[in-house]
């Protein structure tokens, strides 16, 4: 019960616009250039919902959609795990700004968008998915925490799980107290059972030591350190290279999560 098969990958960050593009960068087919990120489409949302959603929701749904399309599976029965350090800080900023105005005019829409599971709710609505969903945070280690929750869910319920990790730069003035250097979102379709859709196989093991995997490319390494969702980049690097390898992700003070990746 410690194996997962990856069936789909979604990716969006400046210079990594989609998994085919990101894969080309990670295997060195072309250099990493942090150009402006294309707008994340939230095409699967109805127009009136799409208007109200924020950049955070659009980014999370965009990569989720890419991973599901690549895996070519029906998302309506797939449980989801969403991992993000801080969620939608744009909404938090607007609420806190409203709270210092006379009469404190907090927008009802901002308030119900302020919950951490807003992207999960929109994903469920867009895909008519009534399966379970869990939104979590583990600060800088949110990606590893999300992967462990997704793995535990996949094994316990013997089901595919869609993992989505995302974080965006915070707006000023919060940006001065929490630096996230660029938007980054990644999604993985994980299956505890092997199928013909398998792109790579993962074995997960908790480890006490913290020899965390890094990236050789200094700019990609800066991105890895600069966004909690990008802490998953060493895993993406291994998937892209299609060679057997080991990757260790930090799980904070509890040590590390070792991933053995097989093509």
């Amino acid at each position: 019960m410690n194996t997962l098969h990856i069936e789909g990958v979604g990716l969006m960050a400046p210079g990594l616009a989609g998994w085919p593009d990101g894969r080309a960068v990670l295997i060195g087919e072309r250099p990493y250039v942090a150009e402006a990120m294309p707008a994340a489409s939230a095409a699967l949302l109805p127009a009136n919902e799409r208007r109200r959603t924020t950049a955070t929701v659009k980014l999370a749904l965009h990569v989720a959609q890419e991973a599901i399309l690549q895996a070519d599976i029906d998302p309506s029965t797939v449980p989801t795990v969403l991992a993000s350090s801080g969620g939608d800080s744009e909404v938090v900023d607007r609420i806190c700004a409203a709270l210092i105005l006379p009469d404190r005019p907090v927008s009802p829409t901002h308030f119900h968008h302020s919950v951490h599971n807003t992207p999960a709710g929109y994903w469920a609505i867009a895909n008519r998915c009534t399966a379970t969903s869990l939104s979590l945070s583990a600060y800088d280690d949110s990606f590893a925490a999300g992967l462990m929750e997704a793995a535990a869910l996949a094994w316990t319920d013997r089901t595919r799980v869609l993992l989505v990790a995302y974080d965006l730069p915070l707006p000023f003035p919060l940006s001065e107290r929490r630096e996230i250097v660029a938007p980054f979102a990644v999604a993985l379709v994980l299956n505890p059972a092997p199928t013909e859709r398998r792109l790579a196989t993962l074995r997960l093991e908790r480890r006490a030591d913290q020899s965390v995997s890094r990236l050789d490319d200094a700019r990609l390494e800066a991105l890895r350190l600069g966004n909690p969702a990008a802490r998953g980049l060493p895993l993406l690097w291994a998937i892209a290279h299609s060679t057997a390898s080991r990757v260790t992700l930090s799980t904070g003070e509890s040590g590390g999560l070792e991933l053995e990746i097989k093509p």
Binding site: G87, V115, H116, N117, A120, S133, L134, S135, L136, S137, A138, A145, M148, E149, R206, T251, G252, E253, S254, G255
Partner: peptide, 10 residues
């Protein structure tokens, strides 16, 4: 020092 996470689903 075990695994730690915040569950945040409203």
């Amino acid at each position: 020092r075990g695994v730690a996470l915040a569950v945040s689903t409203a």
